[in-house]
Amino acid sequence: MKVAYVTPFYNGNCEGRFGRFHDWIHTARDMDDPPFEFEVIALMVDNPDSTLSSQSNSCLGSANELWASKLNKAEIALNLPRIHRELRTGDYDVVHVLRLDGLIFPTVLSAIDAQTAVVIGPNIGGWSPIREGGQWDHDGNISGIKQQVGYRYRQLLTKIATYDIALSFTKYHRKILLEYGVDNSKIRVLKPGVSEIFSNSWDFGNESKKNSPTVLYVGDLSEHKGYDLFLRAIAKSESDFHAFIAGTGTPRRKLIHSLGIEKCITHLGFIERKDLPRYYWEADLFVMPSIDEMGPNTIIEALASGTPVVATDTEGINEFSPKDVSDYFSPRTPDALARAIDRSLSENNQRKAKKYRGKFLAVDTLSQLKTIYERIIE
């Protein structure tokens, strides 16, 4: 069985967009006996690699940054003939398209025959009527209009596109796909799995463990991810802990000073994914205070590292974490988050979370994908 993965972004090191997909691919490439043969057909790729079947049009800029080149739409258009040629000559049993994109998808369908199985997702996102707050709260302005147009466009694509299976990250993500018009019988919810580097993180040892507990936040420093909420919760917490904050963005120095929490916070900036396991392993608690997520990687990474989780009690976020090592807080306020942090630290959930190391692995997701591919081929 030969699978072609068609993706806008592939930068060779599991960073940036489509991180879960990168984990599958890198895991499969490292296996002595991968579950199926595959090639990655990427529209933008900066890291030359013999396993890949594509190169980028570098005249439009490098794709080595997290969000690829700034002219990615133009680069996608210039690469479409190459994508069409590679799919037409590749003799694939399954073509798996990561995004339901108006430029890419017609190219894919025109290059393959009717016998080729087609899978879409799970990187199908954007605004829908069930997603509110944070980055989706732009009614009446230009951003809101763009969100509405994108939503209608995705609805149109689901009506005219031909595919066998649509993948989702969570049950909440399934609801989003249903809003777009995807047939419920075609949707499959993926098993959460990430690279084994997270479950192997005990190899780092405990030489840097501190006397006081540590709490980890991983994500950009935005309102949507809950950065400000976390800062205010630190000030209200009754526990003595140090907070490590990993992510891009500008720290809120004035707010931190006004809250009087300068000495108990360390901003780490952006941490490469290969270095994240150390921070998960050394943390006594991981915090995910986001407003809305289709299925955050960070919670799975924390669990695979044996680190307990405190997270917002909302769909898409509260589906992964086992109840015995998780504390979901609601309402989404600094007081509620502070109480959840205090409870989790006092209950010594870190010891109980160790049993989840070795679970939530990308190899399990690959096994599920193999079953999905085989069934639609049959």
Rank of each mutant, 00 (worst) to 15 (best):
Q350R: 11
I300N: 13
R357D: 04
G193H: 07
E37M: 04
P81F: 12
I265R: 14
D364W: 13
A340V: 14
Q135K: 01
I104R: 05
S212V: 15
G126R: 09
F21P: 00
L157Y: 00
V363R: 15
S56T: 07
D228M: 07
R253Q: 15
G181S: 09
G316V: 03
K2F: 01
T307D: 06
N13V: 13
I300C: 11
D313P: 00
K370N: 15
T107M: 02
S110V: 12
E293K: 04
D113A: 02
D139F: 00
A311Y: 07
V363Q: 13
N64A: 14
E262A: 10
N141S: 06
D228Y: 11
I271A: 08
A114K: 15
G260E: 14
G226W: 01
I341T: 11
Y227W: 11
L361D: 08
L167S: 03
A63I: 03
R273D: 04
Y328L: 11
R154K: 15
K146P: 01
K370R: 15
S50A: 09
L60C: 10
D327N: 10
L66E: 14
L190H: 07
E378D: 09
I377T: 10
G61S: 10
P48I: 03
G90C: 03
D49M: 14
E39T: 13
T162I: 09
H267R: 03
G133S: 12
K73E: 12
S53G: 03
K146W: 09
I299H: 01
H96F: 01
Y328C: 08
A28T: 05
A161L: 06
R131D: 10
S110K: 14
L100V: 07
N123M: 04
Y279E: 04
M294Q: 04
H224A: 09
V310N: 04
P331G: 11
F36I: 06
D183V: 00
V189Y: 00
D240K: 06
D183L: 07
G16L: 03
R29G: 14
V310P: 04
E65Q: 14
A336F: 13
E262I: 02
C14I: 12
T248F: 01
G306P: 03
I261P: 13
E282V: 09
T298R: 03
N79M: 07
A114R: 14
M31P: 03
K210Q: 13
